[in-house]
Design a protein around this nucleic acid. Structure first.
Length: 415
RNA sequence: GGAGAGGUGGCCGAGUCAGGUCGAAGGCGCUCCCCUGCUAAGGGAGUUCGGGGUUUAUAGCCUCGACGUGGGUUCAAAUCCCACCCUCUCCGCCA
């Protein structure tokens, strides 16, 4: 949710328009807000009179009460009419304001999906190994998609054998890294209420991507970002405690509606996967530093895994409503001969915090905090990239150096 | 799953049966001042949050709202009614 007071600020408007808002839309909202406020004053003035009259009734003698109550009743009818008008104006402002995206940061390129800015490239693209990740995963007995489909449907898989040990190694390695950077390790609930989905900004827009448990009015989260956002919903934090950094590990569930036929190989796109997610509550003045920190961590992980990647600054038109800026880290996928997204990090500025009601009190008063999130490690997808980059010519697998202390083995022979 | 108790300011806790003088007694904590060689003790004052208006101001002033949340009744709700959420106790079940 944007701050309505910023609507007259030209830079703010430009940023919103870059994200796809129209000038007419912003003007309409501005006008709606103005009439809402003036109606609110009228309602409050009237309500004040009602309050005063009621107080007098309390002090009045029994004889004079009936006439006073009569007068109060008239005022009340008048108030009811105004209140209804006010509620209507309120609703229209709310509807309009939810449609307005968080303005893009000045450093974000305009345009759509193809108009990203290439920030950096690390390592070199390499030729495809003998087997793509799908074939390799099946050959090693690491990924069993057939039985996954039998048991749960398409886009479900069993992960087995060394792949499981590699998953735990990745999680452990990444978690230790984050703890060293003062992230609080967290295993959050993965079932949340509808209100949490709304407050985190996933409902109503992404409703069809979410699994529902109607019997209990609960929803399976597609990312631990959601329950992590709930950790300080409605809180008034102490500014001195910021930044608050959390590292959430959870399974993630996504319906992947509308992706039939896309990414059908292996476990690139599945309904259930595990992920370590970073989430930061930041001082508004420092959130851009925190955003760079998230990118730095993501790059460090990719570097140490020795995966060739590039970082892109996602164009404004390709950003979701809440993000003011987003970096994607795309790793070279040899079998496809293309860079594919593995991790990303976004700065939501105060857009999400306003809806969550999370403020921080400091020397300069109380203000909404900024929230940021980023992928530390999407486990299944990371494994998939490792399967291609660490696959040896003889069909064996070499464990990345940094994971060896956690796996207890250094190579896995071909079966 | 069954039965019961309860949710009031930073914390504790009155008020709810008998609606009005209750944004809320009292206490603790905290802040400032006074007093006392130091410390302890004592005396005094202050101390919730949010929206809107005014304003250079996040000061002050005016005003509206908030006693778990949302509705309702009423001239008037912490107090009465309804729904929901949460916490606790006992029984049952359980990794």
């Amino acid at each position: 949710m944007i701050n309505l007071r910023n609507l007259d600020d030209q830079a703010y408007r430009d940023g919103a328009i870059l994200k796809g808002a129209t000038a007419e839309q912003l003007d309409a909202l501005s006008a709606a807000e103005a009439s809402r406020k003036s109606m609110m004053s009228e309602v409050e003035e009237l309500r004040g009179r009602c309050n005063a009259v009621s107080k007098e009734i309390g002090k009045a003698s029994p004889e004079e009460r009936p006439t006073k109550i009569e007068a109060a009743n008239e005022l009340k009818q008048e108030l009811k009419v105004k209140e209804a008008e006010h509620a209507e104006l309120n609703a229209s402002v709310t509807a309009l304001v939810l449609e307005v995206p968080n303005p893009a940061h000045p450093s974000v390129p305009g345009g759509g999906e193809e108009d990203f800015e290439l920030v950096s490239t690390m390592g070199e693209p390499v030729p495809a190994p003998p087997m793509d990740h799908g074939e390799f995963g099946a050959a090693m007995g690491w990924v069993n998609s057939d039985k996954g489909a039998d048991v749960s449907g398409s886009r479900f898989a069993y992960l087995q054998r060394e792949a499981v040990m590699l998953e735990f190694a990745l999680v452990q390695w990444v978690m230790q890294k984050l703890v060293a950077r003062e992230f609080i390790p967290t295993v959050p609930p993965v079932l949340v209420r509808e209100q949490m989905m709304i407050d985190a900004g996933f409902f109503p827009t992404d409703r069809n991507q979410v699994y529902a448990i109607p019997e209990d009015d609960l929803y399976l989260v597609g990312t631990s970002e959601i329950p992590l956002a709930g950790l300080h919903r409605g809180d008034r934090l102490d500014a001195a405690d910021l930044p608050l950094r959390y590292a959430g590990f959870s399974s993630c569930f996504r319906r992947e509606a509308g992706t039939y036929g896309k990414d059908t190989t292996g476990i690139f796109r599945v309904h259930q996967f595990d992920k370590v997610e970073m989430f930061i509550w930041s001082d508004p003045a420092k959130s851009w530093d925190e955003h760079e920190l998230l990118l730095e961590i993501e790059e460090e992980i990719l570097c140490e895994l020795q995966l060739p990647y590039r970082v892109i600054n996602v164009a404004a038109g390709d950003l979701g409503n809440p993000a003011a800026k987003k970096y994607d880290c795309e790793v070279w996928l040899p079998s496809e001969g293309a860079y594919r997204e593995l991790t990303s990090c976004s700065n939501y500025t105060d857009y999400s915090a306003r809806r969550l009601g999370t403020r921080a009190k400091g020397d300069d008063g109380t203000d909404y905090v900024h929230t940021l999130n980023g992928t530390a490690c999407a486990v299944g997808r990371t494994l998939l990239f490792l399967m291609e980059h660490y696959q040896q010519s003889d069909g064996s697998f070499a464990v990345p150096d940094v994971l060896q202390p956690f796996t207890g083995f250094t190579t896995v022979n071909a079966p």
